[in-house]
Write a protein that binds this DNA or RNA. Sequence first.
DNA 1: TACATTTGCTTAACGCTGTTAAATAATTTA
DNA 2: TAAATTATTTAACAGCGTTAAGCAAATGTA
Lengths: 199, 199
Amino acid sequence: MASKDRILRLKEETRTNILDAALRIVKEEGWPALSMRKIADAIEYTAPIIYEYFANKDAILMELTRGGFLILTRDMKAAKEEHKLPEKQLEAMWLAYWSFAFAEKELYQVMFGVDANCCELCEIMPEAEEPSLLVNEAIIQLMAPHQPTEDEVCTKYYTFWSVVHGLISINMVRRNISDDITNEVLKTAISGIIRSIKG
Amino acid sequence: MASKDRILRLKEETRTNILDAALRIVKEEGWPALSMRKIADAIEYTAPIIYEYFANKDAILMELTRGGFLILTRDMKAAKEEHKLPEKQLEAMWLAYWSFAFAEKELYQVMFGVDANCCELCEIMPEAEEPSLLVNEAIIQLMAPHQPTEDEVCTKYYTFWSVVHGLISINMVRRNISDDITNEVLKTAISGIIRSIKG
DNA sequence: TACATTTGCTTAACGCTGTTAAATAATTTA
DNA sequence: TAAATTATTTAACAGCGTTAAGCAAATGTA
């Protein structure tokens, strides 16, 4: 019955091939160019075969999104573990978040883009909550002397996220902003928020 | 020759009808539901007629974008003129920006969404630069004692924009965030940046 | 080995999209 | 009234996501 295993392995491989092909197409030609027929072409099959592995195109995007959150979580976790002080951890994590956004630009777009990902992403995809959990731990540590309520922690989290995500969005559509200014905004904003937390 | 005028007026009216219909469809059914045939249906014509008024679908989106910037500029200008102190002007303008984003959610999406609007929007559409000019005037006034360089003003501008745009983006895809927290983030972020400018 | 069954994959099709060219209807001009 | 121009529609193309039907190869069974 080892042939069964081989076939299962091949199926798993094709599934991965589909995801890889999709991401490669998007990286080479952009999101609008991604089509089922083009993916099929890339893996040397015809389009309907893809539906044996994914319910529809959206399911492929969802799986790419999930993979994106896994990478982002790994990166932010690694950044966090390099520091002991929560303020250093916060800075490192948001810089990791920033790096991820541009290292995996297409993944970031499908993860946080205005389009497809509907409102309840966190509910149907637990991986999407991990990064916020990492950050909130550090915020809570940093705010511990102030005995913060859950809402206060949440407020600080969204302040961080807003400025970083906003800066990323702006940089993605307007590539003409100088890197110096961008870095200045990012660093001073992060340290400014941290300072405001410490009071 | 008054009939010529009448015909020109009718043509102008149809052009407006196309834009109005497009925006109405988007407001009622969302951006993905917008199609040329649906617009044509709404103005009681067939699809090819639209190409007598707009080069293609993208040109319609561009015109909606332009209209959006006109409204945004008007709103921010009005907000600015209600105050004398530059710090008050800045706060009022960014709150106006915020209000616009949710009052004209669909316009904001096409103006700043990740999708269509390519990199050089400001170059081909001067209206897109107006809001930033308004804000920068106030920033320069506020920073006048510090003799700021152009880059420093730019940095402050992007800090403002990042946090506001980021917060808007997050609120648009995650509608489950409480309004209290959102308002708290917005207000404290804006006043925080203003305070950091004043030093 | 021969037949039946399941599996893998393709071709064909549906309804949709943006867009263009040709055909037709309506209006204006001569 | 006939010709020319304009307004509008119908038909078509290529592409999209998706589904159903058909075929071909591999597998299970006798």
